[in-house]
Nucleic acid binder design. Structure first.
Length: 775
RNA sequence: GCGGACAUGGCGAAAUGGUAGACGCAAGGGACUUAAAAUCCCUCGGUGGAAACGCUGUGCGGGUUCGAGUCCCGCUGUCCGCACCA
């Protein structure tokens, strides 16, 4: 099946879950993923480092931040521990700059996705500044404190320094200060969930350490440990400029620290407003002109930024520059270690004497044991009696396998590359195949993959390039994010959710009511929401296919909404699609039954009108299908269906005597009709194609050839506006010139009445479009 | 808090700055039928009118334009992403 899939990859998209499933069913896939891991490790793209995680001691699992429910760090009754784990990290941050800047080259990606990735990568330009510490106040061996700031221009507004509770200086100062140590502990227990952050007040603890201002050695500021400073961004230390930062101003007001306005807009009124705003406790973080800033006064913020940066960079302290420019990223390295059974084993062996030893490539793949149990918390691989015990490939002594498995995002980060030559066993990819097939022309997935999957795949592709497995940077040339299928929700009187299959909808002039089938209880119709098991608003694909067929289901989904938007699954809508399926079959049958008569190639008015309709639909569908506007394709096909029905109605009373030109036109229209709908209703289309007496499969036919002459009408009916409002129609020959159109419009009765004898002030003729008369 | 998107009938939605509501669903009326289903025909933004036709209408307030659902400015609302990122 992978072989069959291969030819389609270029042109079609599959859902990520399908792709992932296909990829991981391939027994050789993990072998190559493990080989890639080892290549990445060798290439310095992977490192093993200590990371702090939320640990649920009861379930023995790592918790994601969003799983740590309440602010005190509890989850399902158990206290969440902060635990340090040694984990494997892919060094995506090494590519942060490139992953960010290359987003601009992805012109066929939705703007929204590119923006989300930009925000996620979070590039910022700033300055690293070293502040000297007053020796008498600082713990031994601490002579300076380095901070990161994006606003060096506001340095004269500094009134305090703040460091993270995990900052080395905080730890050192804690040793002689139990109260400070207690405060740091409390901060660590704080949750990091959004809800917690919103409600938590800014709190700090004065360490007693004082720092010397880099631009004025006579000026010192206190160093606090603060609960809002993050250890893993920048240096884990900041300088507080209350007038220019909302967090800092809250902190300063709480602890009675100075608030010095240093930036205000140049405009006098705006300046007063900004100063008043600061006085009332709201920071001004915009741009403007410097004040209260000594040699910077009067400069723009940009100029001050540059001057301070240059000046501090040229000054030196303890033999090194005081400051240097630094680009920082919000993006973190990708921790791929999972303490789970399901996933690709990490091909590493830990040896007491040799340390971390890669599994030799000829011993790959490291396979998961099949005799595992899930009867207790924790990682089954770790509990397995024999699996992890092995000999060190290097020294032969007893050693231990890595029991962590890879994040499954690793699997989905390169399957598209493997698919280009899935039979090769000697390497993950073969150069000719992978470089000729990739990048994927059109990728399709849900918006939920906007950041993680798509960013990881972009990174992994670059990593494979660095290790010589591929020659491209960007895996996906075009990206389309499709919507979800959503459904109404239903709630019984007792508040329980009721599934769509258990209810009946009654509709009358007063509206819609829902009743539970089992007990006739009135059911409340709720919002249309993403299908979920918990709200029971799901429909079973097997039921739909059993009742209506796959073509009906597909047709309905394509017809209802543009593909990037959610589509609401409704029983009425599916029934409508089902009726259309019947109609298509009927049309095919009726036209197939028309006697075939000799035709001389001349078409009369009625048959030409039908041919125009067919070719117009062909032109419109051809264009819209390329642009993935399937709901419009459906509308055009309905148009054509209506035109064919109308034509059929005329010949229906006596089909045996139908004019040969009309018969020919109907057959042509039917063929085009079936070919247009074949991509959306493939099964029905084949049946109809056969019924029409056409040879072979419609799927194998050439797309119909458009006759452009049929798109051009001989006449054009101009809408005539008077002062921008449509008041009349004037039908002209297609090639009538502007003057002729103008004359005809002015002669029109409605226009004459509006002009009331006066000449028009102005008349605009847009050839082939519209006429507007200004009176 | 920061960033972004969107707002059109009872509903899903159409509309390169050029006839707002294509196409479909729902609803109402009719034909066929003993009846129902299916099928076919008609009506379907609001409002006035017997009708012809008129007025009005794309969240709200302005602006640009011969002409704005579409472009610009300011609001309101909804949704999405990120979020103590210095």
């Amino acid at each position: 099946n992978i072989a069959a899939m291969r030819g389609q990859l270029k042109s079609m998209g599959l859902s990520l879950d399908w792709q992932r499933e296909i990829a991981t069913c391939d027994p050789s896939y993990y072998r190559h993923q493990q080989a890639l891991f080892l290549d990445f490790l060798k290439g310095g793209l992977i490192e093993r480092k200590i990371s702090k995680v939320n640990w649920d001691p009861e379930d023995q699992t790592v918790l994601a931040n969003e799983q740590v429910i309440d602010g005190r760090g509890w989850r399902s009754g158990a206290l969440v521990e902060q635990k340090e784990l040694t984990q494997w990290f892919l060094k995506i941050t090494d590519f942060a700059e490139e992953l960010n800047s290359a987003l601009d080259t992805l012109t066929r990606w939705p703007e929204k996705v590119r923006l989300m990735q930009k925000n996620w990568i979070g590039r910022s330009e700033g300055l690293m500044v070293r502040w000297a510490l007053e020796t008498a106040t600082a713990p031994a061996a601490f002579t300076e404190l380095e901070i990161y700031t994006t606003r060096p221009d506001t340095l004269f507004g500094a009134s305090f320094m703040a460091i993270a509770p995990d900052h080395p200086l905080a730890k050192a100062a804690s040793t002689s200060n139990p109260a400070l140590a207690a405060f740091c502990d409390e901060c660590r227990r704080m949750g990091t969930s959004a809800a917690t952050l919103e409600t938590t007040e800014k709190r700090g603890f004065d360490t007693g350490v004082r720092a010397v201002h880099p631009l004025d050695s006579s000026w010192t500021v206190p160093v606090y440990v603060a609960n809002f400073v993050l250890m893993d961004y920048g240096t884990g230390a900041i300088f507080g400029c209350p007038s220019g930062d909302q967090r800092d101003i809250e902190f300063a007001r709480q602890y009675g620290l100075p608030i010095i306005p240093v930036v205000a807009p140049a405009d006098e009124a705006a300046r007063a407003a900004a100063l008043a705003q600061i006085a009332s406790g709201k920071a001004y973080d915009g741009e403007g002109v410097m004040l209260n800033s000594h040699f910077l006064d009067g400069m723009t913020t940009q100029a001050a930024f540059a001057l301070v940066s240059d000046r501090l960079a040229s000054e030196s302290m303890a033999g090194k520059p005081v400051a240097k420019r630094k680009v920082n990223f919000r993006l973190r390295d990708w921790g791929i270690s999972r303490q789970r059974y399901w996933g690709c084993p990490i091909p590493i062996i830990h040896c007491e004497s040799c340390g971390v030893v890669p599994v030799p490539k000829d011993q790959l793949p490291v396979k998961l044991p099949e005799d595992v149990t899930f009867d207790r918390p924790g990682n089954p691989l770790d509990h397995h009696k024999t699996w992890k015990h092995c000999a060190c490939p290097s020294c032969g002594k007893p050693a231990r396998r890595e029991t962590d498995t890879m994040d499954t995002f690793a699997d989905s980060s390169w399957y598209f590359a493997r698919f280009t030559d899935p039979w090769t066993e000697t390497a993950p990819t073969t150069a000719d195949a992978v470089n000729s097939w990739l990048p994927v022309n059109q990728y399709i997935g849900g918006i939920e993959h906007a950041i993680l999957h798509l960013l990881y795949a972009r990174f992994w592709t670059r990593a494979m390039k660095a290790t010589g497995h591929i020659a491209i940077d960007e895996p996906f040339e075009g990206l389309f994010t499709q919507g979800m299928v959503v459904h109404e929700t239903y709630k019984a009187p007792d508040g329980s959710w009721v599934s769509p299959a258990e209810i009946a909808i009654e509709t009358d002039a007063h509206g819609r009511r829902a009743v539970r089938l089992s007990d006739k209880a009135e059911v409340t119709i709720g919002d249309v929401e993403k299908m979920s098991k918990s709200k029971r608003n799901t429909v079973d694909p097997d039921d739909i296919i059993g009742t209506y067929g796959a073509d009906t289901a597909r047709w309905f989904m394509l017809s209802d909404s543009p593909p990037e938007r959610d589509v609401a699954w409704t029983e009425d809508g599916v029934q409508g699609a089902g009726r259309f399926v019947q109609r298509v079959w009927r049309i095919s049958g009726e036209i197939a039954d028309l006697p075939a008569a000799a035709h001389d190639g001349h078409f009369g008015a009625d048959s030409t009108a039908l041919r125009r309709a067919a070719h117009k639909a062909l032109a419109a569908v051809s264009e819209d299908v390329e642009r993935l506007r399937f709901n419009r394709c459906v509308a055009h096909i309905y148009d054509l269906s209506n035109a064919i029905m109308a034509a059929l109605a005329k010949v229906a009373p006596r089909p045996a005597t139908a004019a040969p030109d009309m018969t020919a036109a109907l057959h042509e229209a039917a063929r085009i009709f079936i070919q247009l709908l074949a991509p959306m209703m493939p099964h029905l289309a084949e049946e109809c194609w056969h019924a029409l007496g056409q040879p072979g499969l419609v799927a194998q036919t050439q797309w119909p050839v458009l006759d452009p002459a049929l798109l051009v009408e001989d006449t054009f009916t101009y809408p005539v506006q008077i002062n921008g409002k449509k008041r009349a129609d004037v039908t002209m020959a297609r090639d009538a010139d502007g003057a002729a159109v103008e004359a005809a419009v002015l002669a029109d009765e409605v226009v004459q009445r509006a002009l009331d004898g006066r000449p028009p002030r102005k008349i605009i003729v847009v050839p082939g479009r519209i006429v507007n008369v200004v009176v």
